[in-house]
Every structure is written in structure tokens, then in C-alpha cells.
Nucleic acid binder design. Structure first.
Lengths: 189, 189
DNA sequence: GCAGTTTTTGACCTTGAAGTACAATAACAT
DNA sequence: ATGTTATTGTACTTCAAGGTCAAAAACTGC
């Protein structure tokens, strides 16, 4: 059957994601990736078609992770407000050492110039927005939130806010303030 | 006294800003810059120390522009709400062909890895936030906005929202939705 | 243990980005 | 017209990013 692979592909993708997260796409070299994954550059290109392909794979993995986490939160019992706040804190990367959100970084760095990446980012944003919308609707039904707001627009607001916070987090600043913003916006629902 | 310069430095910085805006920092080559400015690479490096220096200069110029515009809006007469909305639309680049905001792009692309750029970005964000805070306070004093919100936190919210919108604008999407978000958040003040 | 197969490795190659040097050129003062 | 000084852009250097490849290594079946 030939020589078995000396490393797990999934683990490698995770590590790559971590590096891209910290350094961005252009700021990360194949050599650095190989070192980080503990493999040779040849293996890297043998396993992943290109740096770009690996990047997209890392982004997709990130999306899955985030959506999984969101779904879990959404299924949990109890008032929805605190869970919304928690979700926003995690998504924006508040308290997570100035990394922000990989997807936001990717969207801002590559933007429309890279249609593939752009599409992945857009998908994630859209799905997060949908989860927010459901959460808001649920909170309105249970009486936790006021019903005088359009869930749709409010969800977009939350999304924009989370994305903005992730940029501010990356630029650096007190977590206190960021939590305050999240509290304020969710308490206002 | 020797030969005078054949191009205006300020105009050149403006054009460079335009290019960086569209293509990002890493995505823009010195050759492209020279072509865009209509000069040779030699002149480029003779006038600006390096690509990085030119980039920072373009970012500073962008900051000045934006703050100037904000100040103008703030000094204008009439209700503050519409002006706030207008400011947010301009800052986020709504309806401006998927470019978003250069500073947000720069902060997300280079992040904490580039302390100089990071500082410029942080400065602009802080100043925009301050203007928002003043505007909100003014609106509260005039009775246009409710007084039950802390102007400080609300300003941070607006800032986060604007930044997030600029990312969403860059990723592409209907301007309609973005205007709706802005209307919603300002009308809720 | 040998054939056949797949993976690993690091040296190697190609390309283009970033920056430098300089000869030619242009504008000024006198 | 002439000397002087600054500007210009081509050509060149350097360096590393991104990717390839041949040879060695690790496995399976016979």
C-alpha cells in the first residue's frame, strides 16, 4: 500500500489555520507552513495542491468550527441573551490575543480580488447572520426581547458589530470596552 | 536651483492611496505604483523612502480626509441623525464599488505585526469614535436622541458597526441592506 | 527478501518583488 | 549660451516566495 502518511491531514489544516490567523495570507510563506506543520515543503505540496488551496481549506474548517459552536449555543437551554453575548465574544475573538477573526481578516486582505475566498467569507457571514436572526426571533417569541424591531435588520446589525469588533480586537484595545459594546447592543434588543 | 519636480507629491499620494485601497498592501507592487502615478520607479523611490513609507503616508492622508469630512458634517446645521447616517455611509464605503475602508483593510491585513500601520489605524478609529460620541451627546442634549444610553458605549457601537459594514461592503452585498442597518442603529439612539 | 507502491525530504529551479545605481536629460540662474 | 544641480527611468542586483523533482524511506503482498 505504500508508505503511510506521517501526519494527520486534519491536524495539519488546523495548524495552518492557526498560522494564517496570526500572519495573514500574504504574510505566511510555504516554508513557515511546512515548519509549523512539522513536515517538508514537498509533503506540503503533495498533500495540498497549493498555498491558496490550503488557505481555503483552513477557512472552510474555520467556518465549520464556528457554525458548530454557534449551533451548540443555540440549542442550549435558558435565556437567549447571554448566549448571544457569548457567541459574539467568541466570534469577535474578544480576549483572544489580538487575532480577530480569520475570515474577517481574509475578506479584508483579499477582498473581491479573490473570488473563492470571498465566497467562503460571504457564506460564513450569511450563515452567522441567519443564526442571529433565529436567535432574535426566538427571544422575541419568548418575550425576552422587544418585538418592535425587525429581526432581519437587527441580525445584520449584530453581524456588522461582531465583524467590526474583530477588527478592533486585532488592532488592540481593552476587552472591557468590547464586552461593554456587546452587552449594550444585546440588552437593547 | 536645479530642475523642479514634474509631479505633485500630494497628487501622487492620493493616487497611491487609491491603488492600495483597491489592491491592499502586499497586493500592490512598486511597478504598479509607478505606473499609476505616471512616473518611473526611480522617481518613486527618490520621492518616497519605500513602499511601506508611501503606504503609511497614504493612510495618514486618508485619515486627514475622513476627519475633515466628519468635522464638516458635524459643524453643519440641522438635526444630527441624518448627518450621522451620512457619515457612516461614507466611512463604510456603502455604494462605493466594493472597496470598503482602506484603514480597515490595512488593520486587518497587517494587524499587530506592523506597529506603525496599527498605530495609524488605531488613531483614526479613536478619533472617529470621539466624533461619534460628541454627535450623540449633542443629539441627546437637543432632545433628538434618548438620554438613557451612555454616549460612550453607543459611540463604540457605531464605530464597530461602521467597520463591520466596510468589511461586508468589500465582500459584496446589496447597499440597501447596509443602509437599513445604519438607519436602524441611528434611529434607535 | 524482493517487487511494487506511496510518502517524505531537501535541494533545486523559476519568477518576480523590492530596492539601487547611474547615465541621460531637463530646468534653472547668470 | 553655459555651468550647475535635480530629476528621471532603465538596467541591474539581490533575495525570497512559490513550487518541482529525483532519490531515499516505509509499507504490503508474494
Amino acid at each position: 500500500m505504500g508508505r503511510p502518511m506521517q501526519f494527520e491531514t486534519d491536524t495539519a489544516v488546523d495548524k495552518a489555520m492557526e498560522l494564517f490567523w496570526r500572519q495573514g495570507y500574504a504574510g505566511t510563506t510555504p516554508q513557515e507552513l511546512a515548519s509549523e506543520l512539522g513536515i517538508g515543503k514537498g509533503s506540503l505540496y503533495n498533500t495540498f495542491e497549493s498555498k491558496h488551496a490550503l488557505f481555503m481549506r483552513a477557512l472552510r474548517r474555520y467556518s465549520e468550527r464556528r457554525l458548530e459552536h454557534l449551533t451548540d449555543l443555540f440549542l442550549a437551554p435558558g435565556p437567549i441573551g447571554p448566549r448571544l453575548k457569548e457567541a459574539m465574544i467568541v466570534l469577535a475573538g474578544v480576549g483572544e490575543h489580538q487575532r480577530g477573526c480569520v475570515m474577517v481578516n481574509a475578506a479584508a486582505e483579499l477582498g473581491p480580488a479573490d473570488v473563492d475566498v470571498n465566497r467562503i467569507a460571504d457564506d460564513l457571514f450569511t450563515q452567522i447572520e441567519a443564526v442571529f436572526r433565529q436567535a432574535i426571533a426566538q427571544g422575541q417569541k419568548s418575550g425576552e426581547f422587544a418585538v418592535d424591531r425587525v429581526a432581519d435588520t437587527a441580525a445584520s446589525q449584530l453581524l456588522a458589530c461582531v465583524i467590526g469588533l474583530s477588527v478592533l480586537v486585532k488592532a488592540g484595545g481593552p476587552s472591557e470596552r468590547f464586552r461593554g459594546v456587546i452587552d449594550g447592543i444585546v440588552d437593547g434588543l
